[in-house]
Every structure is written in C-alpha cells, then in structure tokens.
Nucleic acid binder design. Structure first.
Lengths: 121, 121
DNA sequence: CTACAAAGACTACAATTGTAATCTGTAATC
DNA sequence: GATTACAGATTACAATTGTAGTCTTTGTAG
C-alpha cells in the first residue's frame, strides 16, 4: 500500500471513526473541521481508494459505502516505527529523551503510563 | 522556514553531526550511507540552503563551508510536536499508549527513562 | 599560459500532493 | 417523459520531491 498523505489522513480519520460511511457523511465531517472544497474531499477519497487504504461497497441504496482496509492501530503502529527510524535511528528511548528534554513529557506522564501498562497485563 | 523533506533530512543529519562542513565531506558521508548520485546530494544541499535550514560561508580556501541554521534539538522538538498533532491530537500519553500496545515500548524502557530524567534534575 | 577536474549553478523531468473545476450518469421531481 | 441535482469519474494545474544531467567557473597540475 502506498503512503497516505497528510490531507488524505484527515479523510482516513473519519473513515476510521465511523467505520462504514458514505461519501456524504465523510464530506460533512471533514468539512466541519477544514474549509476544503467538496471536490477536494472527493479527490482525497478516491485517492485513498486507489491506494488501497479504503474499500468501496455499493450497498446502502444508491450511495457507495466506504470502509477502511487498514486499521487505525495498524497504521499508527507503522507510522510510529517510521517516525522512530527517521529521527531516532529506531530508538524509542532516544525519542522519549528528546520529548522529556523539551518538557513535552513529564515524570508524571510516565508514572501514569506505567500504571496503565500495569493494569493492561 | 520551509519543511525539510525526507531525503534532505539525510543531508541535514550530516551537517548537524559535523557542524561546519564542506560539500565534499557531506557528499562523502551521505554517499557512504546511500547510493545517491553526487549531483543528487548537491541538489539536496542547495535546496536546504534555499529553505534556510543551512547557511553557507565561503572561508575554507575555495570550498564553501556549510553550517546548520537550526539545531538538531530544535528541529526534533518541532517534528515531535508535528507528529503528535498529526496522529495523536497532541497527546503524548495517547502516543505512548500506542507504542506500549504495539510492544515497541516496555516497562523497562520507562523505568530507565525515569532514572535518566531523575538524574537530569 | 593551457588544459583539466571538480564545485557549484542551472536545467530537467516524472511522481506525488494540495486544491479544485468540469463532465457524466442516474435517481428523484414535476 | 423532461428536468434537475447530486455522486462519482475525469481532468487540471502548480508546488514539492526524488533523482540526476549539463553548463560555467576556477584552482591546480603540467
């Protein structure tokens, strides 16, 4: 699958959130957050279909219904790794240190997270 | 300043590492990691100059010397924030949770990091 | 002084991306 | 049945990016 561009991602997010959704709904929701033209959103949608990130099913009356082909989790996992590789040579720790240095990450954040991980087990 | 592209970043990394560096040195070092043509690297270099990410000084004999205009820390900080905003609505915790879920981040990583933060204070 | 190599400038060109207008077919409306 | 409105398809077009070739100038070797 081809890379999802930044603008496309905004459309993708709506598809993830609603899971099965018509273009009408997509356009409404994306429009509410951006000032993109309807046609722009339609273009992004078809590019996502071309790229295989979204699949189309014609089944709700006459409207097409769109659904994700890749899950949000899966996508984020891949993007996390890309980001790590691109900037931190793949090292989570290097990344976290940079976050911490720039005060974007506090000890409290870490403690909370540890608790969450703990619970999850 | 304009966005640094992915290929440009590889050149930028060398400039950060060496701090003041001639194009010859840049080409050597980038070439050792990629199989990019010399001219490709030169193009990336001039684009970085155009974008203001790098500055040029003609002072080491006849060769130009290049130096970063933005520090690695500063750049990474900005990119971290962009990444966070793009995928996690700006929430570090959301991001870390995703990392943790995908096993890219373990409890041990966190403990080590806490120690480091502790020491840093 | 002349010729050559190499640095840096300039040009090239296809793919991707952001941004949208126009065309076409069909479903609903009168 | 004729008309219209809208979904989806097709086309458009400039900016950015990856990838490199060619031109120009100039330091250096002979």
């Amino acid at each position: 699958m081809n890379k999802i561009s930044e603008a496309e991602l905004e459309v993708m997010k709506v598809v993830w959130k609603r899971n099965e959704v018509t273009s009408l709904e997509i356009i409404e929701e994306v429009s509410s957050k951006t000032n993109w033209n309807k046609n722009t959103i339609k273009t992004l949608l078809s590019r996502l279909v071309e790229k295989g990130a979204i699949q189309v099913m014609k089944d709700r009356g006459s409207l097409f219904v769109y659904a994700p082909n890749i899950s949000e989790q899966e996508y984020k996992k891949k993007e996390n790794q890309n980001f790590l590789d691109k900037l931190y040579n793949g090292s989570v720790n290097d990344m976290l240190l940079t976050f911490a240095k720039s005060k974007a990450l506090t000890k409290k954040d870490l403690q909370e997270l540890m608790k969450l991980i703990e619970e999850d087990k």
